[in-house]
Simulated assay, not measured.
Amino acid sequence: MENKNLVDDCLFCKIIRGEVPSYTVFENDDVKAFLDISQVNPGHTLMIPKKHITNLFDYTKEDVQRYLQYIPEIANAIKKAFPNVTGMNITTNNGKSANQVVMHSHIHFIPRFKGDGLKLMTRNNADQYDEAKYNEVADKIKAQF
């Protein structure tokens, strides 16, 4: 059965259709989860909706309920598969400037192990903010709801 919610030139849509092989760890009518080819750490898995959605900015509330409900189930399966997991980064890159490479929504599950040496880059700019600046930023966001 052809899925009309997929596009022709998307790598992840091709994986869903079986045109490109993957190391699938979980699949149902809603999502497919498979090993990330980079394997940042053993068990690094991607979960994708079986509907072409570019990234989280394009999700409807219905999409969230349908596709993201599987995050805990997949995370727990990875944790159980690797008993020495001490944590897990569950991330998504949304847009090219956020390092999204495949323009089909996907969630990364990156198992963390004691001493794995993996560093996710963040920075602390708290010293550049005072109460007025925090309120200004918060108010800009609040005004969008």
Rank of each mutant, 00 (worst) to 15 (best):
D8R: 05
F34R: 01
A98P: 05
Q144F: 01
Q39V: 07
D30W: 01
Q65G: 15
R112T: 00
E73H: 06
D30A: 04
I37P: 01
Q100P: 03
S97G: 04
N124V: 11
I53Q: 03
N41I: 03
E131D: 15
K50T: 08
N99T: 02
G43F: 03
N93Y: 09
R17S: 13
A132M: 07
P42E: 12
M47L: 15
H108F: 08
N99I: 01
T91L: 15
G18P: 07
K61I: 11
D130A: 07
F145V: 06
R17H: 02
G87S: 11
E131Y: 05
D8G: 12
A77M: 14
Q100H: 05
P72F: 09
K79H: 02
T91V: 15
N99G: 00
M88A: 08
I107G: 00
T86V: 14
N99W: 12
I141D: 01
E27I: 03
A33E: 06
P21T: 14
N76M: 13
D36T: 12
P42T: 09
K114E: 15
N84F: 08
D130S: 08
G115I: 09
K32P: 10
L35H: 12
K51H: 11
A126I: 12
F57K: 08
K51M: 10
H52W: 13
I16W: 00
N41G: 06
N84E: 14
N3I: 07
T122S: 14
N124Y: 10
I141K: 02
Y67D: 07
